[in-house]
């Protein structure tokens, strides 16, 4: 369980977030959507400890080592092979090098990268690099994964495949996820709960939407579920109203 309570963040003198509260229950997939500049990424950075909040609380019963983070950029070490990058996550968790490498190979194969273990990041496609980054996080068997628009740079087909793989693994292992995304459809297709962040500065959580789609979930079929379109419409209307009000 992760609970963010009345969190306020600023970049220097510029306020970003003000009083953001949300909850990620154990084993649930939660998304955070909102306009650009509303502080979505900053909120994730505060949770993982990369940014100091002005006020508010971040409470979790999950140990720091059990929280994984997937960035917008894959941020793989360019001088390490795919296998070494995945193993790095385990080695930094205290796993012996030999065991880490063996586990890394398994994860690379599991994520459809068989035969690419020895390749350097520059020798991989965008989708393959993203899978390596995902393997790096999943290999550590985290209880919670924070994702900052990790699939934004991928084309539609690769994105659908990678997200489906992610959902399958997250459901199988009961991992909690907090995903930040611009994409309302993606948020609804993947999540159990979606939070809407208002337009910044001084952004706040302005809505919470429970997604009643069944699990295990097919992320493509979810989009044609009867409950999907009305929920998307509602979320879209609320987001438009929020952006419109601030612009006015």
């Amino acid at each position: 369980m992760l609970r963010v309570d009345s969190l306020a963040l600023a970049y220097g003198a510029t306020p970003v977030l003000e009083g953001a509260s949300l909850e990620v229950p154990s084993g649930r997939f939660v998304s955070l959507v909102g306009p650009s500049g509303s502080g979505k990424s900053s909120l994730l950075r505060a949770i993982i400890g990369l940014q100091k909040p002005l006020s508010g609380a971040i409470e979790t019963d999950i140990a720091a080592g059990e929280i994984g983070m997937l960035f917008q950029d894959d941020a793989l070490l360019p001088w390490r092979t795919a296998e070494q990058n995945v193993a790095l996550g385990l080695r930094l968790k205290g796993v012996a090098t030999g065991t880490a490498i063996a586990s890394a190979r398994q994860w690379i194969t599991r994520l459809g990268l068989y035969g690419l273990s020895e390749r350097f990041p520059r020798e991989l496609s965008g989708g393959q690099r993203k899978r390596v980054a995902l393997a790096q996080v999943l290999a550590r068997e985290p209880q919670l994964i924070l994702m900052d628009e990790p699939f934004a740079s991928l084309d539609a087909i690769v994105r659908a495949r990678v997200t489906q793989d992610l959902v399958r693994l997250v459901e199988l292992r009961g991992i909690s996820v907090l995903l930040v995304t611009h994409d309302l459809e993606e948020a609804l297709a993947l999540s159990d709960v979606v939070y809407l962040l208002s337009q910044g500065p001084r952004a706040r959580i302005s809505g919470r939407y429970d997604v009643p789609l069944p699990r295990p979930r097919d992320v493509m079929k979810a989009r044609i579920h009867a409950d999907f379109a009305p929920l998307l419409q509602r979320l879209w209307n609320d987001l438009s109203r929020e952006v419109g009000e601030r612009a006015a």
């Binding site: 990369l50 720091a64 994984g68 983070m69 960035f71 950029d73 941020a75 930094l92 968790k93």
Partner: peptide, 26 residues
């Protein structure tokens, strides 16, 4: 040095030693 790589290693639990070995050194 690419800040994203530093943050990557930090979020994987790496300390100063790991940063020197894995990011700054190479």
């Amino acid at each position: 040095v690419d800040r994203r790589l530093v943050e990557r290693v930090v979020t994987l639990g790496g300390g100063r030693g790991a940063l020197l070995r894995e990011v700054y050194g190479p």
